[in-house]
Amino acid sequence: MTDGGGSNLPLIAAVVADAEQKCHRCQGGLYLSAEVPAVGMPGWQRITLCPVCDANDPASQDLIAFFAIHSVVDEQTNDTFTRLVYDWLTAKRPQGVSPEKFEEDIAAWQQGLYDA
Protein backbone atom coordinates (compact mmCIF):
# COMPACT_ATOMS: atom_id res chain seq x y z
CA MET A 1 0.00 0.00 0.00
CA THR A 2 1.10 3.54 -0.63
CA ASP A 3 -0.18 6.83 0.67
CA GLY A 4 -2.45 7.35 -2.35
CA GLY A 5 -0.68 10.56 -3.30
CA GLY A 6 1.51 9.05 -5.96
CA SER A 7 4.49 8.50 -3.68
CA ASN A 8 5.86 5.16 -2.64
CA LEU A 9 5.62 5.92 1.05
CA PRO A 10 3.87 3.15 2.93
CA LEU A 11 0.50 3.83 4.46
CA ILE A 12 0.77 2.86 8.08
CA ALA A 13 -2.42 2.84 10.08
CA ALA A 14 -3.87 1.15 13.11
CA VAL A 15 -7.55 0.55 12.39
CA VAL A 16 -9.83 -0.46 15.27
CA ALA A 17 -13.40 -1.73 15.10
CA ASP A 18 -14.84 -1.61 18.60
CA ALA A 19 -18.54 -1.19 19.26
CA GLU A 20 -17.77 0.37 22.64
CA GLN A 21 -15.98 3.37 21.11
CA LYS A 22 -17.97 6.62 21.18
CA CYS A 23 -17.94 9.40 18.62
CA HIS A 24 -16.29 12.55 19.96
CA ARG A 25 -18.87 14.64 18.08
CA CYS A 26 -22.24 13.01 18.88
CA GLN A 27 -21.34 10.40 21.53
CA GLY A 28 -22.94 7.69 19.37
CA GLY A 29 -21.27 4.43 18.48
CA LEU A 30 -18.41 4.37 15.97
CA TYR A 31 -17.90 1.86 13.21
CA LEU A 32 -14.12 2.40 13.07
CA SER A 33 -11.29 4.55 14.29
CA ALA A 34 -7.79 4.78 12.90
CA GLU A 35 -4.48 6.27 13.92
CA VAL A 36 -2.76 7.62 10.82
CA PRO A 37 0.31 9.79 10.21
CA ALA A 38 -0.57 13.46 10.64
CA VAL A 39 -0.49 15.52 7.45
CA GLY A 40 2.22 18.17 7.35
CA MET A 41 3.55 17.55 10.85
CA PRO A 42 5.19 14.80 12.84
CA GLY A 43 3.01 12.51 14.87
CA TRP A 44 -0.32 10.80 14.46
CA GLN A 45 -3.93 11.84 14.14
CA ARG A 46 -7.07 9.89 14.96
CA ILE A 47 -9.84 9.71 12.42
CA THR A 48 -13.19 8.13 13.14
CA LEU A 49 -16.06 6.68 11.15
CA CYS A 50 -19.41 7.59 12.69
CA PRO A 51 -22.55 6.50 10.81
CA VAL A 52 -24.35 9.68 11.91
CA CYS A 53 -21.70 12.41 11.75
CA ASP A 54 -19.99 11.12 8.61
CA ALA A 55 -23.13 10.25 6.63
CA ASN A 56 -22.65 13.26 4.32
CA ASP A 57 -18.89 12.83 3.94
CA PRO A 58 -18.21 11.46 0.44
CA ALA A 59 -15.03 9.75 1.66
CA SER A 60 -17.01 7.82 4.28
CA GLN A 61 -20.25 6.95 2.50
CA ASP A 62 -19.14 3.71 0.82
CA LEU A 63 -17.70 2.32 4.05
CA ILE A 64 -20.81 3.30 6.01
CA ALA A 65 -22.93 1.55 3.36
CA PHE A 66 -20.75 -1.55 3.68
CA PHE A 67 -21.44 -1.71 7.42
CA ALA A 68 -25.16 -1.14 6.84
CA ILE A 69 -25.21 -4.30 4.71
CA HIS A 70 -22.55 -6.45 6.39
CA SER A 71 -22.44 -6.90 10.14
CA VAL A 72 -19.06 -8.67 9.97
CA VAL A 73 -16.08 -8.85 7.66
CA ASP A 74 -15.60 -12.40 6.46
CA GLU A 75 -13.67 -14.18 3.74
CA GLN A 76 -16.20 -13.18 1.09
CA THR A 77 -16.23 -9.47 1.99
CA ASN A 78 -12.60 -9.01 3.06
CA ASP A 79 -11.30 -7.68 -0.28
CA THR A 80 -14.12 -5.16 -0.57
CA PHE A 81 -13.67 -4.08 3.05
CA THR A 82 -9.91 -3.68 2.60
CA ARG A 83 -10.38 -1.49 -0.49
CA LEU A 84 -13.03 0.66 1.21
CA VAL A 85 -10.88 1.16 4.32
CA TYR A 86 -7.91 2.08 2.14
CA ASP A 87 -10.02 4.61 0.20
CA TRP A 88 -11.33 6.06 3.47
CA LEU A 89 -7.86 6.33 5.00
CA THR A 90 -6.30 7.98 1.96
CA ALA A 91 -9.13 10.43 1.24
CA LYS A 92 -8.17 14.08 1.33
CA ARG A 93 -9.54 15.70 4.46
CA PRO A 94 -9.75 19.39 5.23
CA GLN A 95 -7.02 20.55 7.54
CA GLY A 96 -7.88 23.12 10.15
CA VAL A 97 -10.74 25.58 10.03
CA SER A 98 -11.40 28.07 7.25
CA PRO A 99 -11.20 31.75 8.22
CA GLU A 100 -14.89 32.11 7.33
CA LYS A 101 -15.96 29.24 9.60
CA PHE A 102 -13.76 30.60 12.38
CA GLU A 103 -15.46 34.02 12.16
CA GLU A 104 -18.91 32.38 12.11
CA ASP A 105 -18.06 30.40 15.25
CA ILE A 106 -16.75 33.51 17.05
CA ALA A 107 -19.95 35.42 16.20
CA ALA A 108 -22.12 32.51 17.39
CA TRP A 109 -20.13 32.25 20.62
CA GLN A 110 -20.47 36.01 21.23
CA GLN A 111 -24.25 35.69 20.74
CA GLY A 112 -24.34 32.93 23.36
CA LEU A 113 -25.38 30.25 20.87
CA TYR A 114 -22.90 27.76 22.33
CA ASP A 115 -24.10 28.17 25.90
CA ALA A 116 -25.68 25.03 27.28
Rank of each mutant, 00 (worst) to 15 (best):
T90Q: 11
V72Q: 14
V36T: 12
G40W: 11
D18H: 12
V39E: 05
L89A: 04
R25H: 05
C23R: 03
V97Y: 08
N8Y: 11
S7V: 04
T2R: 12
S71N: 13
L30T: 02
K92A: 12
P51K: 00
A55M: 10
Q45Y: 07
T77W: 01
C23T: 04
S7K: 09
R25D: 09
L30K: 01
N8S: 15
R46D: 01
P94C: 05
K101C: 05
E20I: 04
K101H: 11
Q95T: 12
P10A: 13
A65P: 04
S33K: 07
V97T: 13
P10F: 08
V72E: 13
G4F: 02
Q110C: 08
G5F: 13
D115C: 01
S60E: 00
E35A: 05
K22Q: 08
M1T: 11
Y86E: 02
N8Q: 14
F81M: 08
A65L: 10
Q95D: 10
R46E: 12
H24G: 14
E100W: 06
Q27K: 11
I69A: 12
R25T: 12
G96F: 06
D54E: 08
V52I: 12
A38P: 03
P94K: 10
W88M: 02
L11F: 04
S7D: 13
C50G: 00
V36D: 02
A116L: 06
I12G: 06
F66I: 02
V16H: 04
A17H: 07
G96T: 04
D87P: 00
A13N: 03
A13P: 03
D115Y: 07
L113E: 15
H24I: 09
G5A: 15
D79F: 11
I12D: 11
Y86I: 03
M41D: 10
P42L: 10
Q110I: 02
S60Y: 03
E35G: 07
S60L: 00
A19M: 08
F67S: 03
D3N: 14
F102P: 04
V39R: 15
I47W: 01
V36H: 02
I69Q: 13
N56K: 15
G28L: 06
A68M: 12
L32S: 00
A34Y: 02
V39I: 13
Q95W: 06
L89I: 05
A59M: 07
V85H: 07
K22L: 10
L32N: 00
A14Q: 12
